[in-house]
Simulated scan of single mutants.
Amino acid sequence: MNVLVAGGTGFVGRYLCAELHDRGHDVTALARSPDASVVPSGVTTVEGDVTDRDSLRTPLEGLDAVVNLVALSPLWEPEGGNEMHDRVHRQGTENLVDATEEAGIGRFVQMSGLITGDEDLTSYHRAKARAEEIVRASDLEYVIYRPSIVFGDGDEIVGYTTKLKQMFAPVGPLYPLPGGGERTFFQLIHVGDLAPMLADGVEGDEHANETYELGGPKVYSLREVTELVFESKGRSITIVPLPMSLSKVGMSAMGAVPGFRLGPDQYRGLKADNRVSDNDVGVFGVAEDEMTTFEEYLGVK
């Protein structure tokens, strides 16, 4: 198959491109500034921007499938403000879907977010929910994935905990976390486990027009994630609970500080439950107890 991976040189994209290439497919990685050094030598890279529909026409010629992995992080406020989530996730998906239909391509794979559709959630999740609606309303044969937070080499979750420490308590072992980090949960999934399941969605007719929620083998609180990250670095920290009400006020106020990149949206994200309601990894022949845990990845415990 000839497959285009939008966001193909990003964190998840480079793993998926490698997986598809290993399976014998002709793979093209599309990105605004593609870096050919992060994908296998047999993978073609091409410049394109999902927010610019005209830039997508030529790259989509002669393809069998399109995968949309383009995403902004839900952990930080993006440059340009939270409205960028709608521009990239909702409008970008609409542009890519329209261009895919126009090119007569049969299969469209969309990576969404685990939590969607709640009006009290973040700009990220609202935009992801609207993007799903666009995909389902199209004439394309689609597969939608809703993974929990993805970890692995090049991820954001490890850097996120370190950055929070630098922001909230740059000196000393004390680490204030909203709610003590015990009200925010992630069912972390390793990118090496996720990529083959995404590739199955590109290939398998049995996955047509299905939506899958995917999580790893364990659920972690933000506190546990933070402690594991610092343990892997050989550093000791003491978690200090920060009342959620105070966290809301503080993050809202600090959101106006240049470079802080945390605000009301990110506070709402801390209240979200990022656990799957029913883990669909078994659909892809994957057993949860065979998946990579966060501790194994970090080399602790």
Results as ranks from 00 to 15, higher is better:
85 H>S: 02
69 L>W: 09
116 T>Y: 00
117 G>R: 00
108 F>M: 11
87 R>A: 14
67 V>H: 08
108 F>L: 08
80 G>W: 01
75 L>T: 13
93 T>V: 07
98 D>T: 14
95 N>G: 03
82 N>Q: 09
83 E>V: 07
79 E>T: 12
74 P>F: 01
112 S>Q: 05
96 L>Q: 08
116 T>P: 00
98 D>A: 12
66 V>N: 07
81 G>P: 03
72 L>F: 04
81 G>N: 06
75 L>V: 12
77 E>Y: 13
74 P>I: 00
77 E>R: 15
71 A>Y: 08
103 A>N: 02
101 E>I: 00
113 G>A: 15
117 G>I: 01
94 E>N: 05
71 A>M: 08
106 G>D: 13
74 P>A: 06
91 Q>I: 05
68 N>Q: 09
90 R>V: 01
103 A>P: 00
71 A>H: 12
96 L>F: 15
117 G>H: 01
97 V>S: 05
73 S>F: 02
100 T>N: 06
88 V>N: 06
74 P>H: 00
97 V>G: 05
92 G>C: 07
89 H>A: 02
111 M>S: 03
76 W>P: 00
79 E>V: 14
94 E>D: 12
93 T>M: 11
97 V>W: 13
106 G>R: 15
71 A>V: 11
95 N>P: 14
78 P>M: 05
105 I>K: 03
70 V>Q: 09
109 V>R: 08
68 N>P: 06
111 M>W: 07
76 W>V: 09
107 R>Q: 05
88 V>E: 06
115 I>D: 06
65 A>T: 10
86 D>Q: 14
114 L>A: 02
81 G>L: 08
96 L>H: 14
115 I>Y: 09
103 A>L: 00
83 E>L: 11
114 L>D: 01
89 H>Q: 07
68 N>V: 12
76 W>R: 12
94 E>W: 15
67 V>I: 14
79 E>W: 15
80 G>D: 03
105 I>T: 09
112 S>L: 01
73 S>G: 04
111 M>L: 06
78 P>Y: 08
92 G>T: 11
71 A>K: 15
97 V>C: 11
98 D>C: 03
101 E>V: 00
102 E>L: 01
112 S>R: 06
98 D>H: 11
76 W>K: 10
94 E>C: 02
72 L>D: 12
83 E>D: 13
98 D>V: 09
78 P>C: 05
73 S>H: 02
99 A>M: 09
107 R>I: 07
110 Q>E: 13
74 P>V: 00
104 G>I: 08
116 T>M: 01
86 D>R: 12
68 N>M: 10
108 F>K: 11
102 E>I: 01
66 V>T: 07
109 V>S: 03
81 G>Q: 04
72 L>W: 04
118 D>M: 15
73 S>A: 07
70 V>D: 04
100 T>Q: 11
94 E>H: 15
65 A>S: 11
92 G>V: 07
72 L>T: 02
98 D>M: 12
101 E>A: 00
103 A>S: 08
100 T>V: 08
96 L>N: 13
108 F>A: 08
82 N>R: 13
69 L>K: 09
72 L>A: 01
65 A>W: 13
